[in-house]
Simulated scan of single mutants.
Amino acid sequence: MKIRKALGTSAALMAVLLAAAPTASAGGNWDYGTSRLKLSNGYLWTTIAADWDYPTEQPGGGVYWKMDEWYEKNDGGTITAQFGFSYHGYSYNKGWFTQNVNTTSHEFFNGLGFNDCANVVGWLAVQGQGTFYNAPVTAC
């Protein structure tokens, strides 16, 4: 009887500790930390990971984050586009670029100070076609 009670108490304590522990990294719809959106002429990818190359930690602790977005264009004509992401209702973007068929374009966002589990949504704006939003990833 004492063994069952000790096991029950240990299991309850372990459940509380696991519930309180932070998750290891990021979520996504394709793989751990990665989301992929199939478009009519290719695939838009968004990844998020800890930015171990960033020289400092965030105020109050924690790592900075990095995102990599890329578009694999395998059909259609030349486009003019821009990568970006949204976080807490704010949008961040990089400059416009042109892309031809059968090429891949990349953009990197480094040293990002994500400090909660809010969704980060990568996007690709294409002139004349609109903005395409990837499934969210998170820093948790």
Rank of each mutant, 00 (worst) to 15 (best):
S40Q: 12
M67I: 14
T23A: 15
Y92L: 03
K94I: 04
P55T: 09
F97T: 03
Q82R: 15
N134A: 15
F83M: 03
W70G: 00
D68W: 10
D51Y: 05
G27L: 11
K66S: 10
P55W: 10
S86Q: 13
E107L: 04
A118F: 03
G8V: 10
D53R: 11
A50Q: 12
M1Q: 12
N115D: 15
G95V: 04
E69W: 00
A26F: 04
V120M: 08
F114Q: 01
E69I: 11
L124F: 05
Q58L: 14
G62S: 11
G95L: 05
T9H: 05
A11P: 06
Y54C: 01
S10I: 14
A6T: 12
A21C: 14
F109D: 01
G28F: 07
F83I: 03
Q58V: 03
D116F: 05
N74R: 14
T34Q: 14
F85A: 05
W30L: 13
P136T: 11
G61P: 10
L39M: 15
K5P: 00
Y87E: 02
L7I: 13
Y133H: 14
R4V: 08
S25Q: 09
A20V: 09
T98S: 15
T138V: 12
N102L: 04
G60W: 12
N134C: 11
N100A: 11
K94Q: 13
G130K: 02
P136N: 09
L112V: 02
V120K: 07
W96M: 08
E57S: 13
N41S: 09
L17D: 01
T103D: 04
A6R: 14
Q127V: 07
L124A: 02
N119G: 06
A11L: 15
G61N: 10
V101R: 14
A6S: 12
A81D: 05
V16F: 08
G122P: 07
A11I: 15
W30H: 13
R4E: 12
G84V: 01
P22E: 05
N74A: 03
F132D: 02
M14R: 11
G77D: 15
G8I: 13
A135W: 09
N100D: 15
S10E: 09
P59Y: 11
Q58Y: 05
G89F: 15
S35R: 06
K2G: 10
E57C: 03
H88Y: 08
T103I: 00
T56M: 08
K5M: 06
W123P: 00
N115C: 03
W30S: 10
K2S: 15
K94V: 10
Y32K: 14
N93K: 09
A135E: 12
C140E: 07
N115F: 06
I48Y: 00
V137T: 15
Y90R: 10
G62M: 11
V16Y: 05
N102I: 00
V126P: 09
M67K: 03
Y43N: 12
W96R: 07
A15T: 14
N102F: 05
Y54I: 03
T138P: 08
T98M: 06
K38I: 08
H106F: 15
I3S: 06
F108S: 10
L44G: 01
L13V: 12
E69C: 08
W52D: 12
G95S: 13
